[in-house]
Design a protein around this nucleic acid. Sequence first.
DNA 1: GCCTTTCTGTCATTGAGTGCCATAATAGGA
DNA 2: TCCTATTATGGCACTCAATGACAGAAAGGC
Lengths: 217, 217
Amino acid sequence: MTTVAETPRAPRGRRPMSERRRDLQRLEISREAVRLFRAQGLAATSGEQIAEGVGLSVRTLWRYFRSKESCVEPLLSQSSAAFVAMLRRWPRDRSLEEHLIADARPSSPTSPGDDEAALAVIAMSRAEPAFRAIWLVVHERSEPVLAEVIADRLGRAPEELAVRVQAATLAAALRITTEDYAVALADGVAITGEDMVARLSEAVRAATHGVIGEALT
Amino acid sequence: MTTVAETPRAPRGRRPMSERRRDLQRLEISREAVRLFRAQGLAATSGEQIAEGVGLSVRTLWRYFRSKESCVEPLLSQSSAAFVAMLRRWPRDRSLEEHLIADARPSSPTSPGDDEAALAVIAMSRAEPAFRAIWLVVHERSEPVLAEVIADRLGRAPEELAVRVQAATLAAALRITTEDYAVALADGVAITGEDMVARLSEAVRAATHGVIGEALT
DNA sequence: GCCTTTCTGTCATTGAGTGCCATAATAGGA
DNA sequence: TCCTATTATGGCACTCAATGACAGAAAGGC
């Protein structure tokens, strides 16, 4: 604190874009970009096409994203965040499987195709290294939040090495089941939500032998 | 099989570069690139500088690497591969900790600075998203091999969901401890090898509660 | 109305990455 | 040794992702 006065002056000109608004804009761009990527592939899609599709200038596009590949990030983040949010609602007296079943997710009501689009990107990431890299980074970003969830359940600190590793384990289980699901979807194999829940719980239980996933008495 | 004769003709012209030789060349480029990245940062280092440093033309550099950021990949892969190789030597009757202590690694004798360089890149990856992405991808690539190790120890199939998730857990434990180490090293804090071993074993044990890491009787 | 701040577009420029073709290097066969 | 087939490398032109600089447009308070 070097300034004594708290500078109570009201801000003058145009207010900065709200974070919410900015995220929505990025999401809109992301939807169009993924649509083009799915239709033409990454290499065949230019920044100009993406910008035109959203009705922005190319210059502005590069103000929202630092590279064209990273345009897929908001869609991936959204589905990742949805899952993390669900885990935050995980009551202590329920097992993971019980909670997954109980907390049936209605997807994002705003745009029902978002989940499918995100899964398509994940499936594409098998052949597209740039997508794979972004997917892994996005997913890793959720680990600290998962660490909080686990720390809360176990009554430990989120910074503890063991808690962080367990969070990474949970994240990995989620990542692997999600990828399996994405690949199956891309190959036209139908997987039910119950299958997903079962596989995810199995993965977590098998990996941790009950360290995570069980109900707490 | 459309050809009846097995075309026993000896190949004619210059033989393709051996994979070994190519990897060595890539590693050499990687060393120079990381040296420059550490000295000047990623943005301030040009492909031309890297090429000149190794005595290659820029055109040839782009034949070895598809982007300048990916020049760090061989160094990261090497240290990751060294660790995986050590795990492959893990005897069934030893715990992970015992093996880590017993299998003291002499680093790669060819170039003792490689480990330090790789750790420097990992430390840089905190601020450099491109490095972070590559580091995660490289690390993820080791998961199938870890799955084999685990599958072998547990007498299960490497494709099993549970085994893959346990492999991911082991990989995550390794990743987190490595990152902690890299950051400490970058900050000038000394960490002994014993510390590393202890932290890694603790991480694995805490996350899996003995599913991985213990000796098998 | 004016003033201030932020957002967006236009233009010019840089630099990463590729295609194309010529040339050098390597190896077998005559 | 010369010829020929094949691969590795270099040089050049080119595309396009990405940035910096500047000028309006938009959104607020006065």
